[in-house]
Amino acid sequence: MRMTNKSWAAGLILAAVAAVPVLAQDAAPETQEVTADTVVATVGGQEITLGHMIVARNALPAQYQQLEPSVLFEGVLDQLVQQTALAQSLGGEVTRATQLQIDNQTSGLLAGEALGKKVQAAVTEEALQEAYDARFANAEPKTEYNAAHILVETEEEAQAIKEEIAGGADFAEVAKEKSTGPSGPNGGDLGWFSEGMMVPEFEEVAMTLEPGDVSDPVQTQFGWHIIKLNETRLAEAPPLEEVRGELATEIQNKVVDEAVREVLAEVDVEKPEIDFDPAAINNLDLVAD
């Protein structure tokens, strides 16, 4: 089984942490003032700093990040010492595939930093309030619907259920007994929804019912439905805090799109016309040396 770089690094951490003794409380050394440039180890003349450790720790899986700092420090330091020594053992003889990965990761990290600065500057309280006002300040209250349904496989089954309910059967009890949908055990209850949240065929019928009405059989991609509309309401605009994350994501996406367009407009991008099979992208042999 081939071990990935991520699992290899995690394995180093696991081995290093397992070898770290538990220190007695009274054995803790006196702390001193440090910076990101504080050297914590030197391997073959190459310095490893506290800054290297911080970013390495931040990239660890969550289960490792929860370890005590006294244990995690030694584990991360041992990982960096080992990987630095192993990297030096190559003597600069790196495979083409590895060098290409380094190139991609470097450009990816730098691109992420460039975008991160723009995003951080753009997502302000003023920008969030402006986006909130643009969406909700003049928006008409949206109608929301509370409904239940019974889902079966055939139109014949749905029609029989419709007649059973018309004859006085309790909708929720029939749903518990016969509905094949996940809401069946809950009496078919779908909770509240608004336009665009259900498949069109279901939504079109549900939104024409009056509270208390039960529909004729309705076919969707999931099967045949009998729908009961329980009630409707007008939904007021949500508070800013409730949609803060959604609005921030919208702003971020807009900033990223604009930033990419701007930088591409400022550089020369050439894509030579080369006649070859696009399937070459799957050929690892091309980067095997």
Rank of each mutant, 00 (worst) to 15 (best):
V71R: 09
V94L: 15
Q105T: 12
G91W: 09
D78G: 00
S107L: 12
L110T: 14
I102K: 14
V94C: 01
T95R: 07
Q83K: 10
E74S: 12
G75V: 01
L80W: 03
D78H: 02
E93R: 14
G108F: 07
A111G: 09
L90A: 11
G108W: 03
Q88A: 06
S107Y: 15
Q88P: 06
F73E: 12
V71N: 00
D78M: 04
S70F: 09
L72W: 05
F73H: 11
S70T: 14
V81Y: 05
L100W: 06
A114I: 12
S70H: 11
V76S: 01
R96W: 11
S89L: 05
Q79N: 12
L90T: 13
N104W: 05
E93H: 13
S70W: 06
A114Q: 13
V94T: 11
L80H: 02
E113H: 14
Q99K: 14
A85P: 02
I102L: 15
P69Q: 04
A97Y: 03
G108R: 05
L77W: 01
Q99I: 11
E93F: 12
G91T: 06
N104A: 14
Q105A: 15
T106N: 03
T98G: 10
A97Q: 09
A87L: 06
Q88T: 03
L72M: 02
D78N: 05
L109W: 15
T84W: 02
A87H: 09
S70R: 13
Q99R: 15
F73L: 03
S89E: 04
Q83N: 11
A111I: 03
V94S: 09
G91A: 08
A111Q: 07
D78Y: 00
T98C: 05
L72Y: 00
Q99P: 14
R96F: 13
G75M: 04
G91L: 08
T84E: 02
E113T: 14
T106Y: 08
